[in-house]
Amino acid sequence: MLVLDRIKLSLGSFSLTADFNVNAGARVAVMGPSGAGKSSLLLAMAGFIAPTSGRILWSEQDLTPLDPSQRPVSMLFQDQNLFPHLTLLQNVVLGLTAGRRATTAQLAQAEAALAQVGLAGFGGRKPAQVSGGQMGRAALARVLLQARPILLLDEPFSALDSDLRHQMLDLVVEVAVQTTATVLMVTHDERDAARFASHVINVDHGVAQPPRSR
């Protein structure tokens, strides 16, 4: 279970509070108007923003003092999820190696992950040589290899058209099921939420409401 225990974030001119639990394995859509603090909520869970008060716990472990790199979290950002100078395969294998030299076995795993997201044979291409949807798939292949318990998605697919986005969401569900991850995803689109989420968190007027099931 992911616990946000009386979390308070100060975000420039306003603050955001959150006090709720998310069950392990839940798939949660985080919704609300622009600028309400949805991204900040995710960044705080990942450790990129420090809360002014409160604690974040996962399986009863307090994550609050941990660096982002020590948390059981993988995250996809709004953009820059792939390094443009590396091939898709090199990007994906980073999920296993964290930049150390990859073994043959790790490269094989990365190939398999690429194949699973429908990118078999694309490993040698650079991000600029594939479509936006294919970049999203490659990033998800890396998440698959990271296999961390919590997956945070900060609108990584918002630039894609709705058909392509729905394919991505189906893939997210697949990845989440396979890695048994708890997923929180920022979205603006009710239909996206319907397609993917078991629960919805509304963020508005400085409060992130507890998740309610759909």
Partner: peptide, 9 residues
């Protein structure tokens, strides 16, 4: 953020 999230030393 990506480098941190990937735990790169």
């Amino acid at each position: 953020r990506l480098m941190t999230s990937l735990r790169m030393p």
